[in-house]
């Protein structure tokens, strides 16, 4: 039994729509569930008090039951016309207007329900979009464009289209840069690492010392630091503490590394 099912079963049991076996199952869930167990145990103890109180009212409910002839006695006290019909109460509206009012009120209530649900959903979407946008806008700058040859482009937000990049521009985390067949691009990360994108390449900036190569080739002069520089590719992940290396997704060009500098976990 899930916690949600336990909550629902508890209400049914409280409303006497479930038998004593429901109480047993609830007690078992309370004893075994680390998530809602303590709270459910406390609620079950309160429920016992509530049911005890409700038990006191069983005989009182019998005493408060209306007698069989009640409606007849009330009708007998209402004034009647000579025809035997009741004298109608003084209407504030004509019955026709009242009928329209009644139906209109029901209709209005239904529409109110629909509109309030729609407004709540719209508000939720707007708030979510605004919060996502604010979170994206608040992203830290990871790198600066130091050279832009040709017409390289970048998409700064996942849903934004690619726009031309110019020298001196800052790129936030999550930004994606790409170069055309005749373009070149050099980025300087905040730690001083230099990243060169070859023509026809795509790179996503994922962190202060992290990127994801989607296409093409990249040459990285990673500044030395205690954290690894991590480059993900569809074929594997390259990790290095500080070195100069190239990674290519083009079939004929192998990954290279300048020897003598500390590197770990190079793959491929």
């Amino acid at each position: 039994m899930t916690c949600a099912e336990a909550r629902s079963l508890r209400l049914k049991w409280l409303d006497r729509q479930a038998g004593p076996e429901a109480r047993l199952r609830l007690a078992q869930h309370a004893a075994s569930c680390a998530h809602c167990g303590p709270a459910l145990s406390a609620q079950l103890a309160e429920d016992e008090i509530q049911l005890e109180g409700a038990g006191l009212l069983v005989s009182a409910a019998e005493a408060a039951r209306p007698p069989e002839d009640f409606s007849r006695r009330v009708l007998a006290r209402l004034p009647r016309a000579s025809t035997g019909h009741l004298v109608p109460p003084v209407p504030a509206h004509s019955p026709r207007t009242l009928e329209a009012l009644g139906l209109e009120s029901l209709r209005r209530r239904r529409w109110l329900r629909i509109w309030s649900s729609a407004a709540a959903a719209a508000l939720l979407v707007c708030t979510g979009t605004w919060m996502a946008g604010a979170a994206m806008r608040a992203r830290v700058t990871l790198a600066e464009v130091v050279e832009a040859g040709g017409a390289p482009e970048a998409s700064r937000l996942p849903w934004e289209r690619f726009l031309p990049l110019a020298k001196g521009e800052n790129l936030p985390s999550g930004a994606e840069v790409r170069t055309g067949p005749a373009d070149r691009l050099r980025l300087r990360f905040k730690d001083g690492s230099l990243v060169d994108l070859a023509p026809s390449s795509r790179l996503v900036l994922e962190g202060p010392r992290a990127g994801r190569l989607e296409d093409g080739r990249v040459h990285i002069s990673a500044a030395k630091a205690s954290d690894s520089w991590v480059l993900e590719t569809p074929e594997g992940t390259v990790r290095t503490l500080g070195t100069v290396f190239s990674v290519s997704l083009e079939p004929d060009i192998p990954a290279t590394e300048t020897p003598g500098t500390p590197t770990k976990g190079v793959n491929p």
């Binding site: 408060a64 039951r65 209306p66 009640f70 409606s71 007849r72 009330v74 009708l75 209402l78 009647r80 016309a81 019909h85 009741l86 004298v87 109608p88 109460p89 209407p91 019955p95 009242l98 009928e99 009644g102 139906l103 029901l106």
Partner: peptide, 27 residues
Amino acid sequence: AALVIRSLKGDAEAFGTLIRRHEARVF
């Protein structure tokens, strides 16, 4: 709503039904 509208015309049967539908909560 239908019973109220008929009761407004002096329909004893309709008002009697309204009484029976709501007498338990009034008691």
